[in-house]
Amino acid sequence: MDWFKRTKQTLKSVPKTELPDGLWVKCENCGEIIYKKELEKKLYVCPKCDFHFRITSKEYIRILFDEDSFKEINANLMTVDSLNFKDSKPYIDKYMATVKKTGMKEAVVTGTAKLEKHDVVAAIMDFKFLGGSMGSVVGEKVARAIDKALELKVPLLILSSSGGARMHEGILSLMQMAKTSAKLARLAENKIPYISILTNPTTGGTTASYAMLGDIILAEPDALIGFAGPRVIKQTIGQDLPPGFQRSEFVLEHGFLDMIVHRHQLKQRIAGILDFFAHKNPH
């Protein structure tokens, strides 16, 4: 388990969000030059050091679900700027530019899918859309996905990749934490399994709501997982942070994760868990 040994400490908060163009890619962690096709085949994990590259919702859908089984729901939900928010430029302009650039409408894709033949409802967040931030639409789509899982009585998967709640929607973003958590509470009362998958990064309001509420919580290796961002903590307490702070291994060690799963095993391990929950004991 090589990834446990990696001691390199980085506080660079925003590693590259997208794979660069070209035939070759340099590993952000060990510097290895990797043939892009090879990296794709390895599910975007460095063959040399096991660094997990950040990937998009599209790639996770390909990795996790049976071929062509993912059917998107609520694809047309779009953001409304009800605060008329403006910093250096209007929020709605920033949003529309992101829509154009990414070809996505928001920072989460939701749908029904099959995972090793198990029916599931899934919500896959995407960091490339405004840092995977949770505004009204993300909250509403996640909430509807939870309701869908309840309606279909199938397990729910949420894959988080998010810097937290979206500031541009102020209090409305904050309330999405309450909304999604409330829906999950109802799902739990109905005994529908919920598996939460944390990827790099999962912080802020996303962690402090649905990400931390799974029956099973698993994380990819070396993902940044926390409530406050490392920079804010460092500033507040005025001292350096311990090695490995807020990384998957640290969070597991402190008791807030069930397991760390290498991307190569992600689908198979989740399938095992789904098998377990679906199994009926003899009586």
Binding site: A208, A211, M212, L213, G226, Q246, H254, F256
Partner: peptide, 14 residues
């Protein structure tokens, strides 16, 4: 963070 600030808040909402 070590004691799960995010989990504590999330559970209260839930």
């Amino acid at each position: 963070e070590e004691r799960g600030q995010a989990e504590a808040i999330a559970y209260n909402l839930f």
